[in-house]
Design a protein around this nucleic acid. Structure first.
Lengths: 155, 155
DNA sequence: CTATAATAGTTCGCATACGAATTATTCGCG
DNA sequence: CGCGAATAATTCGTATGCGAACTATTATAG
């Protein structure tokens, strides 16, 4: 329960560091995609729908780790832009199934080409660095998810 | 300009990994602070204002790496909640100076105590892992910021 | 078989987050 | 000095992001 100041400082450094990385990615990706008229999260959804056509909204939300309400809003705008179709499932009338429309597939193709150009500088990092990064990130996510579950015992 | 599929896959892994970390931090920190009625970014601003009392809005925005418009909105809500005072600068009437109010200082104290409890599991990581993480994160931020600057040559 | 639980989505109010446009002020060049 | 450029904030419209409340449907317990 008690940490000394140095440890507290250490924790803050990790949080701040993750924040900076998040912000930097957000800014680069927003700028990289804006001339395609697509947002970072929409590009992410395009990929997922391409991998799993006919997925339900709940499954997509689980997949991209966002709440259903947020996911519903994202899909709203993608349907409005004719990138995605939203249809009632035949097996469970509560569910909706999501599928890429032609326009969505074409956009995904352009997103992929664009990403190649914009993100390639990341590969300045060595394989060892990338492996190390991915491993530590996984560890952090595991620790934080564990913390979240234990949290439900509070209150 | 041309990457093979493996490299493209590698880049995607990095982006996805950063996204997962971001989401995990967001969820844990939101939950950790919600009973104090403060958001993660507000807790961050409380710390900065404590370090640099009398800072201007532009300086704060630069510090926390957010746009002025976003920062202005965050301060709006903190002023509304009587955590922060916003006063016209005497030296430059265009600027505003931001200072923590008593209520803000008290809240910062509770945030600090709370954070100790919630974030300590992160220290399951070894010093080597943390050093490695911070170093690689800095490298990523450097690469992405460089990318952002070069971008302005486009269009 | 039916009342109740649980589940799938949507909607609402709120807090970030951005860029563009606007206002007020200061700077800086001639 | 004085006028145009630069700077500091704010406001607006839009897109994430969340939880709570709600509707519709399906599952389940008795």
């Amino acid at each position: 329960m008690n940490m000394d100041d140095q440890q507290q400082q250490r924790t803050l450094e990790i949080i701040q560091s993750a924040r900076e990385v998040k912000q930097a990615f957000h800014q680069v990706m927003s700028k990289a995609y804006q001339h395609l008229n697509v947002t970072p999260i929409q590009s992410f959804v395009l990929r997922k729908l391409n991998e799993k056509p006919g997925i339900t909204l709940s499954e997509l939300a689980e997949y991209i780790q966002l709440s259903k309400s947020t996911t519903s809003g994202i899909i709203d705008r993608m349907v409005r832009d004719q990138l995605v179709s939203r249809e009632q499932s035949s097996t469970d009338r509560r569910s909706v199934t999501l599928t890429l429309l032609d326009k969505g597939e074409q956009l995904l193709q352009r997103v992929r080409e664009n990403q190649v150009e914009r993100m390639s500088p990341l590969l300045q990092m060595s394989d060892e660095e990338i492996d190390s990064l991915l491993r530590i990130h996984q560890k952090i996510v595991r620790i934080l998810h564990q913390e979240l579950e234990e949290d439900s015992t509070y209150e």
